[in-house]
Simulated scan of single mutants.
Amino acid sequence: MSEAGSAIVLSERQRFAWVRLIRSENVGPVGFRALVNRFGGAEAALDALPELAARGGAKRRIAVADVAAIEAEFATAARMKARFVCLGEADYPKALAAMEAAPPVLAVMGEIATLHRSCVAIVGARNASLSGIKFAKSIAQELGRADFCIVSGVARGIDAAAHEAALETGTAGVFAGGLDKPYPNENRPLMRRIVDGGGCLLTEMPFGWTPRAIDFPRRNRIVAGLSLGLLVVEAARRSGSLISARLAGEMGRLVFAVPGSPLDPRAGGPNGLIKDGAILVTEAADVIEAIRPLDGRAPSAPFAQFDEADTALPDEDIAEDQRARIIEALGPSPVTVDDLVDHIGAGAGAVQLVLLELTLAGRLERHPGGRVSLSA
């Protein structure tokens, strides 16, 4: 067992089990952490998945990730000179670890050490204007010279401009799919230059995963989570960049926006953010001045340290009527786990176990702020 705040050290067998566990059906970041801590390790948790899902009311046997599929992932990673970095290890980015429901496993290509510096995310429109692209490049260069790593989503437009300008000072690109499925294809040369220039590319998604529309908000939460602040240069009122800004605000990150002409639809998003309290930016000094007090002070992780002690916790004795009362107290409206514990009068461990069973059965939705609800 590692002491609170210290880095864990995984064997290759344990790392393999971590990847296999997070690739298994219905195992998200919160469930992953609960499983590893409850069963003393990922291997034991994998063995427990079918029974837990059945107790949660699953209508069919849960799909545990196939060993051969994970072996293929590791082979692809080796071929691409990539590796898996796990939450709690020394190389895992500290700012991301402080995010609620941080990804348990990252696939990384290049130098992850660039993310050990303070990071600023720069995002914006894919159909960016020439002036927007020039501004994104200028501010990325100045922030890079001030020793910030620039993070973005490797999309066309503002993302690509920010990465391009920060190649010499350090930049990190986050994928919505697997590292072997870069998107868009036109940015492949830029992605190669990021890695060759000492930056890195990373994702929580499996090798071989082609990004879908629903995967981009997941990518955006990592872009926001890696950074102390997020700057929106250009964005329509309904865009992925505004999702990134909302996620950054929910995480307690600073949100910055570049004002623009009311006549340009691409200025609608940033102008709206400024009205809602985002920090107005006309030069890099605006970002640096706001972030410097936070520099190097990433918040502590919101959950307990992972325990890979290979020693399972004793099972809670949960009577069926108690399990039924916990499920009965849940509904479509999100509630906090603390409120659930107070209402039921059961131990927190018992409630958490039932929530884990429901999660694995695909019957529970998790919401920001640790709230939960039954799936529709």
Rank of each mutant, 00 (worst) to 15 (best):
L10K: 01
W18Q: 13
G28Q: 02
V30I: 12
R33F: 00
A34K: 11
L35V: 12
R38W: 10
E43G: 13
G57Q: 06
I62M: 05
V67N: 10
A72F: 12
F74E: 14
A75G: 13
A77Q: 07
R79I: 12
R79D: 01
R83E: 15
E89F: 01
D91T: 14
K94Q: 14
A97L: 07
A98V: 05
A101I: 11
P103K: 09
M109C: 15
I122E: 01
A125I: 10
S129P: 10
G132T: 04
I133C: 06
F135D: 01
A136M: 04
E142Y: 00
E142Q: 08
F148N: 05
V151N: 03
S152D: 12
V154P: 04
I158T: 04
A161R: 09
A165C: 05
A166L: 10
T169E: 03
A172Q: 09
G177F: 02
G199D: 04
E204V: 12
P206S: 11
P206N: 10
R219N: 08
R221V: 07
V223C: 08
L226K: 13
S227T: 10
L230W: 05
E234M: 13
A235F: 05
A236V: 09
I243N: 09
R246A: 14
M251G: 06
F256M: 13
A257M: 08
P265N: 05
R266T: 13
G272M: 02
G277K: 06
E283S: 14
A290G: 02
R292P: 06
R297I: 05
F306D: 06
A309M: 08
D310P: 14
A312S: 06
D315Y: 04
S333Q: 15
P334A: 10
D342G: 13
I344A: 08
G347T: 14
V351Q: 01
L355Q: 04
L360A: 02
G369Q: 09
